[in-house]
């Protein structure tokens, strides 16, 4: 299930399991709240995402545009193989900022909770 790790410098929204039309509203609400609060640099942890559909991708595109319009960035963090294949097939990997290595600035492993 989606989790949200509070971190003032780099908030992380995690989408574990299936990220599709049925679960997208949970993630959207979290991303929307962060952007409404003026937090524009956001990380979406896709490392434990088993499946992603076009509705979820469209939502990520929407929030990527909102973050960029506000001078920030929405970064996809460590997309799982299932997500990476879809990003490559659709060439959306050319549109998103994607980080496949390293730690998120200001976030330690103990910050990430499930």
């Amino acid at each position: 299930m989606p989790i949200h790790v509070s971190n003032e410098r780099s908030p992380v929204v995690s989408a574990a399991g299936r990220f599709d039309a049925y679960s997208v509203s949970d993630i959207s609400n979290q991303l929307s709240s962060l952007l409404d609060e003026g937090i524009v640099d956001i990380w979406v942890d896709l490392s434990e995402t088993d499946f992603i559909d076009s509705t979820a991708l469209a939502d990520l595109v929407r929030f990527m545009k909102r973050a960029r319009a506000a001078g920030g960035e929405l970064t996809l963090w460590k997309p799982s193989d299932a997500v990476r294949v879809i990003l490559e097939l659709t060439s959306l990997d050319l549109a998103f900022s994607i980080s496949s290595n390293g730690a998120i600035p200001g976030v330690t492993d103990s910050d990430r909770r499930s």
């Binding site: 595109v61 097939l89 659709t90 060439s91 959306l92 050319l94 549109a95």
Partner: peptide, 8 residues
């Protein structure tokens, strides 16, 4: 794919 979808 040569580029991302329309609207991105």
């Amino acid at each position: 794919a040569h580029c991302p979808p329309l609207g991105v």
